Simulated assay, not measured.
Amino acid sequence: MRYPVVLFDLDGTLIDSGPIIMASMRHASVTVLGQEPDEERVRAAIGGPGLIAQMRDLDPDRVDELVEVYRAHNEPLHATLESFEGVFDMLAELDRRGHRLGIVTAKRVATVRLALDRFPLLDDLTEVLVGAEDTERHKPEPDPVLEALRRLGAAPGDAAYVGDSPFDIRAAKAAGVLAVAVGWGGIHPDERLAAEEPDALVHEPGEILDLV
């Protein structure tokens, strides 16, 4: 096996959460600021340093209120989440082959748990979870990926990181792991992902099996 460790982003990579993220960002902006957010600007920031940074971009003076309203709207929507077709089959096959799997995300661990409650198999198949509170610096910095490797006792050369955003690709490359971009997330267009020069850009979960 070329890469014994395979780490994954969560939103837009394993779960189809783009729609609920966008709905909650719009709700927070309209409720708190009384205005529609710039959708393209919001999409471009998803997968980056995290929710607080996104809200600071909307209005630096009302970050706490924006975050509170967003979370109150977003957390119940996790009960409606769907996974991407073929993703869980791919994870199960990686597990069967003996790969060690993990999640590295900008979400708080408590919010990730809402998704894991929705998809218990995802919890069963992954060995490590690194969330927003686990590192001081966040994607696109390499720290979250490196923290996952530290917990697993693994070297960067033995690992791949799979994600749907430019921030994921940058973090993977900075950490020295195989950078795999996925084109099924529905948040970031292929051309933006390709501009980051990932080691691979895939459009079907099964393609990951051939890479690792």
Rank of each mutant, 00 (worst) to 15 (best):
A195K: 07
V212H: 00
R151V: 03
A79W: 02
L149F: 01
E82M: 06
R137V: 11
D123Y: 03
G206N: 04
D61G: 13
R56C: 00
D9E: 02
R113D: 13
A160I: 09
A195D: 10
P60C: 00
L94S: 12
E196W: 00
D95L: 02
L146V: 09
A160F: 00
N74M: 02
M25S: 12
D61S: 15
L77H: 06
R118N: 13
D134Q: 12
G183L: 11
E204Y: 03
L152F: 11
A110W: 03
F88Q: 12
N74Y: 15
V104K: 12
M1N: 01
E40Q: 14
G153Y: 08
L51T: 13
S83E: 01
L91E: 09
L81R: 11
P156Y: 02
R150Q: 11
A110N: 07
D117F: 05
V202A: 13
G163S: 04
P166A: 08
F88P: 06
G12C: 07
P49C: 09
V180I: 12
L58R: 02
A154I: 12
I103C: 13
P76S: 10
G163T: 05
V69W: 01
N74V: 01
R2L: 10
F84H: 08
R2M: 14
V87G: 03
L51F: 05
A110H: 05
I208G: 00
D164H: 07
N74P: 05
A106F: 11
Y161V: 08
L77S: 13
E39L: 11
D61Q: 14
E147G: 04
R100C: 08
V182F: 08
R100A: 15
G47N: 08
Y70N: 06
D123I: 00
I169Q: 03
E191Q: 15
A110K: 04
A174F: 00
K139P: 12
D190I: 01
L121E: 15
G185H: 01
A44P: 08
M1W: 04
V182I: 12
L91W: 07
P166Y: 05
Y3I: 04
D124E: 14
V104G: 14
D38G: 14
D123L: 00
I169R: 02
E136T: 15
P156Q: 15
G102V: 14
P144W: 08
V202H: 09
E39P: 12
M25A: 06
V180Q: 06
S83K: 09
P49Q: 10
E36I: 05
G34P: 07
G47D: 03
I52M: 02
A53H: 09
G153Q: 11
L58M: 01
P60M: 05
A148G: 09
R118H: 11
H78S: 02
F84W: 10
A72I: 01
P205R: 08
T135E: 13
E36C: 10
Q35W: 04
E93S: 05
L178I: 10
L77Q: 14
E136N: 15
